[in-house]
Amino acid sequence: MTTKLGDWLNDRSGWRTIYGTVFLRKIPKINWAYTLGSATLFAMVIQIVTGILLTLYYVPDPQLAYASVTYITNELPFGWLIRGLHHWGASAMVLLVVLHMIRVIVYGAYKYPREFTWITGVALLLLTFAFGFTGYLLPWDQRAYWATVVGTKIGEVTPVFGDTIRALMLGGEEISGLTLSRFFGAHVWVLPSVLLLLVGIHLYLVIRNGITSVPKRGE
């Protein structure tokens, strides 16, 4: 039954070729460190799913943000789980992305023909940090507030454009409702759009170029 449906779909979409290309690739003999990229991808999927669920209740409004987060955490069934997954998943993702990068450095996997994969990867690393930074403000508690004060003050240190950069981040001179809504917009719309595009390119390149083998002594 399922094979019949699969055949029917395959005739009309050729999905088996795509499935084969993506999942039945030939790979060199590798080790567990090579799973870090997939682990990051998995963490990203968790972040997307739990993030979407959080937006069902979260409100980026200075009067209500904290109350809505408290409501999610303390009153909704499994709200603590969804928020907890998103909270700890964020840290896990930063950790995994960094470990993944270390593996690529150590095994020299950034070399020809994978330089562009590496460049998109660096962009994805920075995007992950941007996700962490913008998401940190959203609970709108003291820790969030002061972390954003410090974070945007770091931006201010930039030569020449420092003040402009901080004002652009905050949407004004000080943290306000404008800061909250633009951090929310960035966290939920801007960054995910760029992330999905780059992840798409990154994965395409991984499949297109194949993965590196573990370098041997003397290589």
């Binding site: 968790i46 069902l56 009153e75 909704l76 969804i82 997954l85």
Partner: peptide, 13 residues
């Protein structure tokens, strides 16, 4: 593990 709690979470209110 995510989908089942999500159903309760969505239906919460």
């Amino acid at each position: 593990a995510v989908a089942v709690p999500a159903i309760f979470y969505v239906a919460g209110p």
